[in-house]
Amino acid sequence: MSSTTTSTTTSTSTSTSTSTSTSTNGNTATTPAERTGARTDEAAALIGGARERIDTLDDRIIGLVQERMAVSAVIQEARITSGGRRVNLSRETAVLGHYRDALGKPGTALAMTLLELCRGRV
């Protein structure tokens, strides 16, 4: 019987933490507007849906970065095995230019991060 009570308590605790969040000033936000910083429930609903979409996009981006890292590892292994260097600087320069052209100056920083992730460990 006590395990049933514990299970119920755990379930209640989980649902409570899902429906509330703590704001930067330490207050507990309980309404959708408070959780999103919106002034109306309508705006909060829009923001909530958009945030879910961003979370989905972030998951896809992370998956693509992981895939890029795996492909890069295959390329590096082939290059090293054939007697070449692990990094091809002219290729990296082309990647930096591609991201800069598509996204502006912040694109260069993003490309640098991707290249660093994809270089692997020495």
Rank of each mutant, 00 (worst) to 15 (best):
I80R: 04
K105D: 13
R85L: 05
S21K: 14
G49H: 05
R51N: 10
A45R: 01
I54G: 03
P106D: 09
T4N: 14
I75T: 11
T36W: 03
S17L: 07
T40G: 04
L103Q: 05
A33D: 02
T10I: 11
D55K: 07
V71P: 00
E52L: 13
S82D: 13
E92I: 01
S90L: 11
A111H: 00
S3N: 13
T24I: 15
V95P: 00
I47P: 00
S2G: 10
E92Q: 13
S15V: 12
A38E: 04
Y99A: 00
R79P: 00
T5R: 14
T28F: 03
R68W: 09
T24N: 15
S90E: 15
L110H: 05
A73P: 02
V95G: 00
V65E: 01
R100N: 05
A94C: 06
R68E: 10
I54Y: 07
L115D: 00
L96M: 05
R85I: 02
D59I: 12
L117F: 12
A29S: 14
A111T: 02
Q66T: 11
E42L: 06
Q76F: 00
S11P: 03
V71K: 03
A29T: 09
R121L: 13
A44K: 00
Q76D: 02
T56K: 15
H98F: 08
Y99D: 00
T8D: 15
D41S: 10
D41V: 06
I80K: 02
T108Y: 08
S2D: 15
A70Q: 15
T108N: 10
T9R: 13
V95D: 01
G83W: 05
L110G: 03
A44P: 02
E116Y: 13
T22Y: 05
S23D: 15
D58L: 12
T28Q: 09
